[in-house]
Design a protein around this nucleic acid. Structure first.
Length: 479
RNA sequence: CGGGGUGUAGCGUAGCCCGGUUAGCGCGCCUGCUUUGGGAGCAGGAGGUCGGAGGUUCGAAUCCUCUCACCCCGACCA
């Protein structure tokens, strides 16, 4: 048998497995420019599904969509100096039109805070204009020279960025929490991915934020992946950008702001966590094709009969909103199609051949467990298929949770922590005093960072220096 | 930025050390027939500025110089 699928095993060579999977499942292709990828139609339709679900949730929370320009004048970008310093090494600049130099160079947006807030200052006049809650679906560019990986680290990425302005600190704080919860629910329920949530350390937070809340996943190679953030910006931008309003108290106040985002990194996590040696495994709720139907026949007469049955089933599935596809192409054998659609992660495969017709049955195969089951053609198969899809969604989340918990350890002894971080990787939960010195020491000695700080207070001593510690944190190496 | 490596058809490669027919092979692609329940078979066919520029030579994929791109290992990094 020729080996033309994915040639590397997920646990043996994870990095190569990942690259082959994203390419061979036709999610992406590489572009001519390093660090940039092409999102192909199959990959894009996953992104569209993510978009449409999140978009509904955002709108329900009162956020509206808008679009801001790609190019940002330097003067705007550096108005908030901390923010500017954080991004400047990664900014792409436009310095020419044709052969002529541009007098004031323009940044290609690395994120839209500055250009949006310039406008917010004009639009917000009174407390009646608040809250202002806008979201942008766009792409941003941050130069990544090394270590690029499709979906995980690329110079251009698709994402959404929400930007809100509020009357009070408390309202902004509430917004930050609401968005974190919204993301978490989405990632759990639709992507079937377990995550940890918490606060970033000062070192790791978004430059320009008072604090950052984060969603962190753990990948099969034991490295953490930041999958979304929600920032309390406080008045760090409203002051330099002069976003102020006349309050009910008839005085001028600066607004309190938040920003929050998720990117196509979510797709990277989806691929890494659910995939197996045969390729992708997509959760039904996000899969562009939930059911692929493959006809099998040996002669023209049977072929017509089978096509007729398939059309009927397809119709039933369409009516119930199940996304299905009939692969009736004649250039490949059924065996080839089985492998192909498994590589592309379609949750359910339905096979119908002459033997099935004779028995009034069709074969239903689950991608995740590869269990085969016969169900009756005459007995409303669409309903059974829908039930199976629900089961698959559930099973994927359960198995992901299992793997997730196996990657989390606790430690209260420094050498053990270092050994774990170096050898086993994963998340290590420990107590930390909150000092930059201790954080840097672990980074220097193991390469790991503080991924998140847990909310609940504890009383313990720091794993590094032994001084008082008030919170548990998770250390990990990260992407 | 420092060190190492690789560029030959859409993809994967042989040939290079030691210069000499028409640059070979596998996959894929096209045509036809037979096939189709776990990656089908046979027959015929199309497809190459050998990454680019310059040089040595009667003659360069092969030797020399420069250059570009990509990959790996380090340093740096929302």
């Amino acid at each position: 048998m020729v080996k033309i699928g994915i040639t590397e095993k997920k646990d043996e060579n994870f990095s190569e497995w990942y690259t082959q999977t994203v390419l061979k499942a036709e999610l992406i292709d590489y572009s001519q420019v390093k660090g940039f990828i092409i999102l192909r139609e199959y990959g894009f339709s996953i992104w569209e599904n993510i978009q449409s679900i999140l978009d509904k949730k955002f709108k329900k929370d009162g956020t509206k969509n808008a679009y801001f320009p790609l190019l940002i004048p330097e003067s705007l970008l550096n108005r908030e100096s901390e923010h500017f310093k954080g991004f400047t090494p990664e900014v792409f600049w436009v310095t020419k039109t044709g052969d002529n130099d541009i007098e004031n160079k323009l940044a290609i947006r690395p994120t839209s805070e500055t250009i949006a807030y310039e406008s917010y200052a004009k639009w917000i006049k009174s407390w009646r204009d608040l809250p202002l809650k806008l979201n942008f679906w766009n792409s941003v560019l941050r130069a990544e020279i090394k270590d690029t990986k499709p979906f995980i680290r690329t110079s251009e990425f698709l994402w959404q960025e929400g930007h809100t302005a509020h009357e009070t600190k408390e309202e902004a704080e509430k917004q930050v929490n609401v968005m974190l919860k919204l993301y978490k629910d989405f990632v759990n329920e639709y992507l079937a991915l377990p995550i940890l949530t918490g606060k970033k350390s000062d070192k790791e937070k978004f430059v320009g934020a008072d604090y950052t809340l984060t969603l962190e996943g753990i990948m099969p190679d034991g490295k953490a992946l930041q999958m979304g953030t929600s920032h309390q910006l406080g008045q760090n931008f409203s002051k330099p950008f002069e976003i102020s309003f006349l309050g009910k108290d008839e005085k001028q106040h600066f607004v309190w702001q938040t920003s929050w985002g998720v990117s196509w990194r979510l797709m990277g996590a989806l691929i890494m966590i659910h995939g197996d040696d045969k390729g992708l495994i997509l959760p039904p709720k996000i899969a562009p094709i939930q059911v692929v139907i493959i006809p099998i026949y040996y002669d023209e007469g049977k072929k017509n009969e089978i096509i007729k049955v398939i059309e009927k089933i397809k119709e039933q599935l369409d009516e119930k909103g199940v996304r299905s596809y009939v692969d009736s192409s004649e250039q490949h054998t059924p065996g080839w199609k089985f492998n192909q659609w498994e590589m592309k992660g379609v949750p359910i495969r339905v096979e119908i051949g002459p033997k099935d017709l004779d028995n009034d049955s069709l074969v239903v195969v689950k991608r995740n467990s590869r269990d085969k089951k016969n169900i009756a053609i005459s007995d409303n198969p669409a309903d059974s298929i829908i039930k199976e899809l629900e089961v698959i969604q559930e099973e994927l989340f359960e198995s992901a949770k299992m793997k997730h918990s196996e990657m989390i350890f606790k430690s209260d002894e420094y050498n053990e922590l270092c050994n774990r971080l170096t050898n086993d990787r994963g998340f290590i939960k420990s107590a930390w005093c909150g000092s930059r010195e201790c954080e840097d020491k672990i980074k220097d000695e193991t390469g790991a960072d503080v991924r998140l700080i847990e909310d609940e207070a504890i009383s313990s001593s720091c794993i590094v220096c032994g001084n008082d510690a008030t919170n548990s944190v998770y250390f990990a190496k990260s992407y």
